[in-house]
Simulated scan of single mutants.
Amino acid sequence: MPRFFVPRVELGENFLVLTGENAAHARVLRLKNGDAVTVCDGEGEEWHCVVSDVAPGQVSLVVQEHTAAKSEAAVFCSVYMAFAKADKFEHVIQKATELGAAELVAFPSARCVSRPDERSLAKKLERWQKIAASAAEQSGRGRIPQVLALPSYEAALQRAAQAELAVCFYENEEQRTFRAAIESAPFRTAALLTGPEGGLERSEVEQAQRVGLQICTLGSRILRCETAPLCALSALMYAAGEF
């Protein structure tokens, strides 16, 4: 069924109108009167509708049912990834959205090669948010994950530590497994933090531990910086009963 994202302020209870890019997309799909579509507010709610009129530049819909999105995970998971080279974070945004992440957060750390300035970061954030929106639409999500960039590693730690399950992954950790962290206590919110291409420095890991993050291993193999967050997110969703 075709799925469209519309800002909550533009949604009515009984009638909706698709305009702009949504109307153009509807035209590409060749929607006609009587076709069923789903409209989402990007925040976890959706409206099941039927097309009532197709006109140049707009498509009118009649609301049949308004419900919470069934495709959203019970766990609100934020993925924290240090700035990476090239389009690696873009890959993580797309795939993590498909897997059910609620937020994607980028941050600088000591070994980051990529350090975008304020101007380029603003452009990147705009592009990253569009990637999240496109992936949410493609995968049938009811929420568009928010993509954020924090100014410092300290800010990332402080924010991540607010989650009920907050984990920092470190390749030299040999004892604490992610499974043990997941099974230690019930949780509804989670934060998964991974480093850049060169990994986190030992002092950064100790800093994460001091603010309350659990330090865990993702196994005996060294994972690429774009693989680690997706591996952790997949394991979390499996443990939460999403798969």
Rank of each mutant, 00 (worst) to 15 (best):
K124P: 03
F178Y: 10
A163K: 05
E90C: 12
G219Y: 00
Y153C: 09
L218A: 09
G140Q: 07
G212Y: 12
V92F: 02
S139D: 08
R119L: 07
I222Y: 02
I222M: 14
A185R: 14
Q209F: 12
P186N: 07
C225P: 01
S114K: 11
C225V: 14
E118Y: 04
L192C: 12
R127N: 05
A155L: 10
A191F: 05
E206W: 04
T227K: 10
I93N: 00
S114Y: 13
P108L: 08
A232Q: 14
L200Q: 11
G100V: 00
E206S: 11
V211L: 03
L193I: 09
E164L: 14
L218Y: 07
V92K: 02
E98D: 03
W128T: 08
E201T: 09
I93L: 01
V167F: 01
A191M: 08
A133R: 05
C112T: 05
L121I: 03
K123A: 14
E197H: 00
V147D: 01
A156E: 06
G219C: 01
A191Y: 07
D117W: 00
F89Q: 00
R210E: 15
F107A: 01
S139V: 05
T177G: 15
G212Q: 12
E98Y: 00
L230C: 12
E90M: 06
R119C: 00
V113G: 05
L104P: 02
Q207R: 12
L125V: 00
L125P: 00
Q94T: 13
T177S: 15
F169H: 06
R111Q: 05
R111H: 08
G198W: 00
T227D: 06
R224F: 08
A102K: 07
I131R: 05
Q129I: 07
S120E: 14
I144W: 04
A106L: 04
V147C: 08
R179S: 14
A122C: 03
L213R: 12
L233P: 03
R119G: 03
E90Q: 14
F107Y: 15
S114T: 10
E103C: 07
V167E: 00
A208H: 11
S114Q: 13
